[in-house]
Protein backbone atom coordinates (compact mmCIF):
# COMPACT_ATOMS: atom_id res chain seq x y z
CA UNK A 1 0.00 0.00 0.00
CA UNK A 2 2.58 2.55 1.07
CA UNK A 3 4.62 1.61 -1.97
CA UNK A 4 1.84 3.23 -4.02
CA UNK A 5 2.16 6.58 -2.26
CA UNK A 6 4.65 8.08 -4.69
CA UNK A 7 2.64 7.16 -7.76
CA UNK A 8 -0.71 8.20 -6.27
CA UNK A 9 0.44 11.61 -5.06
CA UNK A 10 2.53 12.51 -8.08
CA UNK A 11 -0.36 11.63 -10.42
CA UNK A 12 -2.63 14.10 -8.60
CA UNK A 13 -1.75 17.45 -10.16
CA UNK A 14 -4.01 19.40 -7.81
CA UNK A 15 -2.44 17.82 -4.74
CA UNK A 16 1.10 18.40 -6.02
CA UNK A 17 0.25 22.04 -6.69
CA UNK A 18 -1.19 22.45 -3.20
CA UNK A 19 2.12 21.17 -1.82
CA UNK A 20 4.35 23.25 -4.08
CA UNK A 21 6.01 24.93 -1.09
CA UNK A 22 6.62 21.64 0.75
CA UNK A 23 10.10 20.17 0.73
CA UNK A 24 10.75 17.92 3.72
CA UNK A 25 11.28 14.37 4.96
CA UNK A 26 8.99 12.55 7.31
CA UNK A 27 8.80 9.16 8.96
CA UNK A 28 5.68 7.06 8.78
CA UNK A 29 5.75 4.23 11.30
CA UNK A 30 3.24 1.45 10.71
CA UNK A 31 3.47 -0.88 13.67
CA UNK A 32 7.14 -1.89 13.79
CA UNK A 33 7.88 -0.86 10.23
CA UNK A 34 9.23 2.63 9.54
CA UNK A 35 8.96 4.28 6.13
CA UNK A 36 11.00 7.33 5.19
CA UNK A 37 9.24 9.65 2.78
CA UNK A 38 10.91 12.52 0.99
CA UNK A 39 8.85 15.36 -0.44
CA UNK A 40 10.23 17.84 -2.94
CA UNK A 41 8.04 20.81 -3.95
CA UNK A 42 4.90 18.76 -3.38
CA UNK A 43 6.08 15.68 -5.27
CA UNK A 44 7.01 12.50 -3.42
CA UNK A 45 10.65 12.02 -4.45
CA UNK A 46 11.23 8.76 -2.56
CA UNK A 47 9.57 6.20 -0.31
CA UNK A 48 12.03 3.92 1.52
CA UNK A 49 11.18 1.04 3.81
CA UNK A 50 13.21 0.64 7.04
CA UNK A 51 14.68 -0.37 9.34
CA UNK A 52 17.16 2.50 9.20
CA UNK A 53 20.44 3.03 10.97
CA UNK A 54 20.57 6.83 10.85
CA UNK A 55 17.36 8.12 9.32
CA UNK A 56 16.93 11.91 9.10
CA UNK A 57 13.43 13.30 9.21
CA UNK A 58 11.62 16.47 10.28
CA UNK A 59 8.50 14.93 11.79
CA UNK A 60 7.16 11.44 12.39
CA UNK A 61 3.73 9.85 12.55
CA UNK A 62 3.68 6.62 14.54
CA UNK A 63 0.68 4.32 15.01
CA UNK A 64 -0.04 0.60 15.31
CA UNK A 65 -0.87 -1.40 12.18
CA UNK A 66 -4.57 -1.72 13.03
CA UNK A 67 -4.93 2.05 13.45
CA UNK A 68 -3.49 2.64 9.97
CA UNK A 69 -5.59 -0.21 8.54
CA UNK A 70 -8.70 1.53 9.89
CA UNK A 71 -7.54 4.90 8.58
CA UNK A 72 -6.79 3.49 5.12
CA UNK A 73 -10.12 1.65 4.81
CA UNK A 74 -12.20 2.77 1.86
CA UNK A 75 -14.94 3.96 4.23
CA UNK A 76 -13.17 4.63 7.55
CA UNK A 77 -15.24 4.05 10.65
CA UNK A 78 -15.76 6.70 13.35
CA UNK A 79 -12.53 7.13 15.29
CA UNK A 80 -10.44 6.19 12.25
CA UNK A 81 -11.73 8.85 9.88
CA UNK A 82 -8.91 11.37 10.25
CA UNK A 83 -5.32 11.70 11.48
CA UNK A 84 -6.68 13.88 14.29
CA UNK A 85 -9.20 11.18 15.22
CA UNK A 86 -6.25 8.85 15.81
CA UNK A 87 -4.39 11.57 17.73
CA UNK A 88 -7.50 12.27 19.83
CA UNK A 89 -7.74 8.59 20.76
CA UNK A 90 -4.04 8.62 21.64
CA UNK A 91 -3.23 5.86 19.13
CA UNK A 92 -1.18 8.06 16.79
CA UNK A 93 1.82 10.04 17.94
CA UNK A 94 2.97 13.08 15.99
CA UNK A 95 6.57 13.87 16.87
CA UNK A 96 9.45 16.14 15.90
CA UNK A 97 9.22 19.53 14.22
CA UNK A 98 5.63 19.43 13.05
CA UNK A 99 5.69 22.92 11.53
CA UNK A 100 5.65 21.70 7.90
CA UNK A 101 2.83 19.29 8.76
CA UNK A 102 0.64 21.90 10.48
CA UNK A 103 1.39 24.64 7.94
CA UNK A 104 0.34 22.28 5.13
CA UNK A 105 -2.32 20.29 6.90
CA UNK A 106 -4.70 19.84 3.95
CA UNK A 107 -1.78 18.68 1.81
CA UNK A 108 -0.50 16.09 4.28
CA UNK A 109 -3.98 14.82 5.16
CA UNK A 110 -4.61 14.16 1.48
CA UNK A 111 -1.16 12.64 0.96
CA UNK A 112 -1.82 10.15 3.76
CA UNK A 113 -5.40 9.50 2.61
CA UNK A 114 -4.19 8.85 -0.94
CA UNK A 115 -3.19 5.37 0.20
CA UNK A 116 -6.87 4.48 0.57
CA UNK A 117 -8.25 2.16 -2.13
CA UNK A 118 -9.54 4.06 -5.14
CA UNK A 119 -13.30 4.51 -5.06
CA UNK A 120 -15.74 5.01 -7.92
CA UNK A 121 -17.24 7.88 -6.00
CA UNK A 122 -15.37 10.89 -4.79
CA UNK A 123 -13.79 9.96 -1.47
CA UNK A 124 -16.46 9.90 1.22
CA UNK A 125 -14.10 11.31 3.78
CA UNK A 126 -11.93 13.87 2.06
CA UNK A 127 -9.42 14.27 4.82
Amino acid sequence: MIENLQERVNADARLVRRGRFVTTSFLLEVGDTPWLINVSEGRISSVTKGPFVMARWTFALRAPQDAWDGFWAQQPQPGFNDIFALIRRRVLRLEGDMHPFMANLFYFKDVLASIRPASNNSPAVHA
Binding site: Q75, N81, D82, I83, F84, A85, H99, M102, A103, N104, L105, F106, K109, A124, V125, H126, A127
Partner: peptide, 19 residues
Protein backbone atom coordinates in the same frame (compact mmCIF):
# COMPACT_ATOMS: atom_id res chain seq x y z
CA UNK B 1 2.23 34.26 11.94
CA UNK B 2 4.24 31.53 10.22
CA UNK B 3 1.20 29.27 9.73
CA UNK B 4 -1.80 30.48 7.71
CA UNK B 5 -4.66 30.71 10.21
CA UNK B 6 -7.46 30.02 7.76
CA UNK B 7 -5.72 26.98 6.32
CA UNK B 8 -4.78 25.45 9.65
CA UNK B 9 -8.12 26.09 11.38
CA UNK B 10 -10.04 24.49 8.51
CA UNK B 11 -7.42 21.75 8.26
CA UNK B 12 -7.78 20.88 11.93
CA UNK B 13 -11.57 20.57 11.75
CA UNK B 14 -11.89 19.01 8.28
CA UNK B 15 -11.89 15.46 9.59
CA UNK B 16 -14.77 16.23 11.95
CA UNK B 17 -17.20 16.27 9.05
CA UNK B 18 -19.04 12.98 8.51
CA UNK B 19 -19.41 10.97 5.30
Amino acid sequence: PDVHGGEVCAGVVSGLIGP
